[in-house]
Amino acid sequence: MNEKRIKNILKLSGICFVLIFSLVPFIWMVIISLNERPDFLLHEGFRLTVANFVDILTMGNLHFLDYLKNSFVIASTTALISSLIGAVAAYAISRITFTGKTLLVLTVLALSMFPQICIVGYLFKFMTNLGMINTYGALILPYIAWSLPLALWIQMSYFSRIPRELDKAAQVDGASRLQTLFKIVLPIAAPGFLSTILLLFMFCFNEFLFALMLTADHKARTVPVGISLFQGLHGELPWGYIMAASVISCVPVILIALIFQRRIISGLTHGAVKQ
């Protein structure tokens, strides 16, 4: 009885902690974005306005919509291509025996540990030589490579749970390996494939350092860089705009997080825990 009460109190305070901890800073962002001035607590108090949202969506020279479009195109293209490449490779690794397999997996994993700064300087020169700085490709190509280890890792663990008998049956029926993958294995592992795409989308949507170094202006600049450099567009840090832009940019990732939380969590834990 006594212990049950302790447990309940702990549980309740834990829930409160999670709610406050996760939500309060976030709500503060929404409040600022809907306010006329960021220092309203010192002055006349809360004055509701949607002007910040209207401004960032309509003022062309703030380029916020460009950033948003760039982010969407870059993140979704990367997520799709990387997940596909990862699926094919994961299938080969989990189904076909060939020499150097373990070495390959370990190398890919080890490479995923590299801090981004270790490759961004070289990438900058590389993209410069290709004349690709400030294009979508300058981000999509490194993003694919950077997200592939994760794509491979998650899907390997999904595929390894699908019985090999299914493949064998399909191959007896005359299907090629690739047909087996796309018609039999991938449909069964669809949840895993979806988790992979969602996770990769979020990773690329949020990435900062590559985007900072490899883009120069609104033609390819993504949302995080745009928001970090909003500074000065209107002189002082335009907090209203920054927060309005942040709220809008958070909507897609938060929707994904809330709707697909099961998928994402299983993706993350397949990636992290199956070791």
């Binding site: 829930i15 999670v18 709610l19 996760s22 939500l23 800073p25 976030f26 503060w28 962002m29 600022i32 960021p38 220092d39 607590l41 010192l42 979020m202 949507f205 949020n206 900062f208 949302v223 995080p224 860089v225 928001i227 970090s228 907090w239 920054i242 927060m243 942040s246 940019s249 958070c250 990732v253 938060i254 994904i256 997080a257 809330l258 939380q261 994402i264 969590i265």
Partner: peptide, 30 residues
Amino acid sequence: LRGIALIPWAIPSVIGARIWQLIYRYDYGI
């Protein structure tokens, strides 16, 4: 709860940093 707990992680880190920068502001940070 799980969905909510994911929010700080799901949003771009730059946005999280911006929120905290504003919270820490000397003159009118919360």
